[in-house]
Design a protein around this nucleic acid. Structure first.
Lengths: 193, 193
DNA sequence: ACCACAGTGGACTCGCCAGTCCAGAAAAAT
DNA sequence: ATTTTTCTGGACTGGCGAGTCCACTGTGGT
């Protein structure tokens, strides 16, 4: 598929429009017609740019959203080299998800194409990169002597990922960030030793 | 609605059949016809016992599954009074979810009727009870002098809930219990101080 | 024996939604 | 200028699945 400038713009408009829709609205039953209406496109355009239909489109949106998840934590996530940096990171996560509220775009996406290998890959990649950053942060702190060396950075980083994911999950049903904050605070306290 | 013995049996058969189906099979698009076929019933029976249709049935199944989640952790969850008990509890959780594999019946249910108040209530209640048990366990340990009193039992219990939920979530996309174990181990290590 | 009401089967409706198709506009290539 | 390819609009199809309806059967009470 050779895209012209106009084509690329349209394709991007569809992805970003769909993402915005998922971020703003209720997640129940997202249809191609919804997206068509929101993005001001026609059926044929959607299938022109995403020949495999819904699944391909939703995967593209999921990738787009996944990249935003990490971007939203920068620059903190990339430089967890002091306790102050960890605190700022913690703050950025809590704020981000508090604003996002009950709607989890990625969660919705997973609900729609959830069990396909492609969908799993998007999530796995995202979580992997996320965990890598945290692991690196812990290792850096160990090198500076701020965290005791006995801790396994990868394992604790995995715990962070789990805690964050779970906190967000709870947020989705309770609407409160209590669990997310508790998980982050407890794990950071554990790092502090 | 006055149910006879036979009626109650049928109703229960539908719920348990649906639950078994969700536990065994892939979660994509569960239809009433699937459940009808699996449970050997007819459309009219489903609507006879669950007048509000899909949502009511799924909520009943969700409640059934939610009660199992806690039962499966007993007797350990109810008596977290020694380090050995915590370890056994940890083991029971990991084993349970390892067996369950990628399919999370409750997750699927939430995907279907996810945003209704009823669905949220089921989840909130389950998580609340779960957290209560853990909080009580931590408080017990503090009373025995096994855990330092400075820790806030409720907050750490919240972190446990988040960690477990997140661990299970990761399990669903990666198929590995690594994160679940890391979360549990790290938090228990934190309790040990 | 009868009757009222719970239980059951399964055909039917009806709307929704992913995906198709084709014809025409715009842009690129020659 | 023409031809080829991409882009766009929108009508149409086909299947699927929730929920309805009605006729029939079992069951328990009197």
């Amino acid at each position: 598929m050779a895209l012209t400038t106009k084509g690329r713009a349209t394709r991007q408009r569809i992805i970003e429009g769909a993402a915005a829709y998922l971020r703003s609205d209720e997640p129940v039953g997202v249809t191609l017609d919804d997206i068509r209406a929101i993005t001001g496109t026609s059926k044929s355009q959607i299938f022109h740019y995403f020949p495999d239909g819904k699944e391909e489109l939703f995967l593209a949106v999921a990738r787009y959203e996944a990249s935003r998840v990490l971007e939203d934590q920068q620059p903190h996530l990339g430089a967890l080299t002091s306790w102050a940096a960890w605190d700022r990171w913690r703050e950025s996560i809590v704020t981000r998800y508090r604003l996002q509220g009950r709607h989890c775009p990625l969660g919705t996406l997973m609900g729609e194409v959830g069990s396909t290998p492609g969908a799993r890959e998007v999530i796995t990649t995202l979580l992997g990169q996320w965990q890598n950053h945290v692991r690196k942060g812990i290792a850096d702190m160990q090198e500076s002597g701020l965290v005791r060396p006995a801790l396994d950075p990868d394992r604790v980083a995995a715990a962070f990922i789990a805690g964050i994911q779970g906190g967000v999950l709870v947020l989705m049903s309770t609407g409160s960030t209590t669990h997310l904050e508790a998980a982050l605070d407890t794990l950071i306290a554990h790092l502090r030793g």
